[in-house]
């Protein structure tokens, strides 16, 4: 097992991770954006669900920030920070949530089920673990085509770790020896179900050995540690080491979705160290280590809020899809549409 970094160790000894402030900015943007989405949802302006990553921004941003062009990223439900770090434009998120016909999903799919495969960001389906083997296939194909130096990263939760698809996907990645990084965030609730009804092993990271992965653990509330541990895992995968499993510990600081008040989360668990807010902790560290002052932080916050408002305003002004203009064609080969009359 690889070593687990101590809280804040990388920042106190050697100064902050070179990507610390960049990552913090994305985390803060994510928080402001997701609060905006939640408020639009409460105002009845978003149809369907809103699923936010509050409390998981540090892990998520670290998942996206080390990926490059040519890499593959298969994010899940709480990965706004990682998606933004990977380069997803905010306006596309707003478009998907608000159902703009100009967005990447054009109203055909919504909220977190979005992606842009040609940029390497896959569009998740709801069935957990299903994206793992899809990433494996992308990586296998890249190798067959002679590409080099690429990695794939996918995320999962402690609930999603228990599906058959996750097991099959993790195993086939190791069999194919593709450069996969799997980041599993144990946020202690899979919807409403706590850990003791999800798994019975001592620690999910112990599974790494069983799959032929290299495993590491990370405190998901500590941005410095997330950058260090996930960054190192990405680097190892890129260098040709076996697939990497990183298990992060956090508490989901929101409901499963904004429809859920999370009243099942116990008070005891809210007092656990892993229940701390990674964004607040990062902000404290920034002030303590004088990486930025309060004024600069305030300035950053205002700039980010303006970016978010602009993205939302743009999406709100765009047209929504219209059934009569939809082509109702699920196949790429037009000549193979069954019952063309029904598509009209």
């Amino acid at each position: 097992m690889l070593q687990t970094a101590e809280r804040g160790a990388s920042t106190s000894k050697n100064g902050p991770h070179e990507k610390y402030l960049e990552a913090f900015r994305i985390m803060l943007q994510t928080r402001i954006f997701e609060e905006k989405l939640a408020s639009l949802y409460r105002g009845g302006l978003i149809t369907g669900g809103v699923y936010i990553g509050r409390g998981q921004e540090a892990v998520s941003v670290a998942c996206g920030i080390f990926l490059q062009e040519g890499d593959v990223f298969a994010p899940l439900i709480r990965d706004q920070a990682g998606r933004s770090a990977f380069g997803e434009p905010l306006v596309d998120v707003a478009r998907t949530y608000l159902g703009s016909r100009s967005g990447p999903m054009r109203g055909r799919d919504g909220n977190i089920h979005r992606g842009c495969p040609k940029t390497g960001q896959l569009a998740m389906i709801s069935h957990l673990g299903a994206m793992v083997s899809v990433v494996v296939g992308k990586l296998l194909a890249k190798r067959m085509k002679g590409e080099k130096g690429f990695v794939g990263l996918t995320t999962i939760g402690e609930g999603g770790m228990q599906t058959g698809a996750t097991h099959e996907g993790m195993n086939i990645a190791a069999v194919e020896r593709v450069p996969l990084v799997m980041v599993a965030t144990n946020n202690h609730y899979a919807y409403s179900t706590p850990n003791d009804r999800q798994f019975a092993c001592a620690d999910l990271v112990d599974r790494a050995k069983g799959y032929g992965y290299e495993g590491s653990s990370v405190d998901g509330t500590d941005l410095a540690q997330c950058l260090e541990v996930i960054g190192a895992a990405v680097q190892r995968a890129r260098a040709g080491r076996p697939p990497q499993l990183v298990v992060a510990s956090t508490l989901r600081l929101a409901g499963h979705g904004e429809h859920d008040d999370a009243s099942y989360v116990s008070d005891d668990i809210r007092r656990e160290p892993f229940a701390q807010d990674s964004l607040q902790l990062a902000e404290q560290l920034i002030l303590e280590q004088e990486l930025m002052d309060r004024e600069a932080l305030q300035q950053m916050r205002a700039e980010l809020a303006a970016e978010v408002d602009e993205a939302v305003a743009t999406a709100q002004q765009e047209d929504t899809p219209v059934g009569s203009e939809e082509d109702w064609c699920a196949v790429a080969t037009r000549s193979l549409v069954d019952q063309p009359a029904l598509a009209e």
């Binding site: 593959v72 495969p117 896959l122 299903a130 994206m131 793992v132 083997s133 899809v134 990433v135 494996v136 296939g137 992308k138 990586l139 296998l140 194909a141 890249k142 067959m144 085509k145 058959g164 698809a165 099959e168 996907g169 195993n171 086939i172 069999v175 194919e176």
Partner: peptide, 22 residues
């Protein structure tokens, strides 16, 4: 492949999206 029908097809999907014809 391993006895993993789900992952066999998932892998094929990823490869196809990357330009292959599995």
């Amino acid at each position: 492949t391993p006895i993993s029908e789900d992952a066999m097809v998932g892998t094929a999907i990823g490869a196809a999206m990357e330009g292959m014809r599995p």
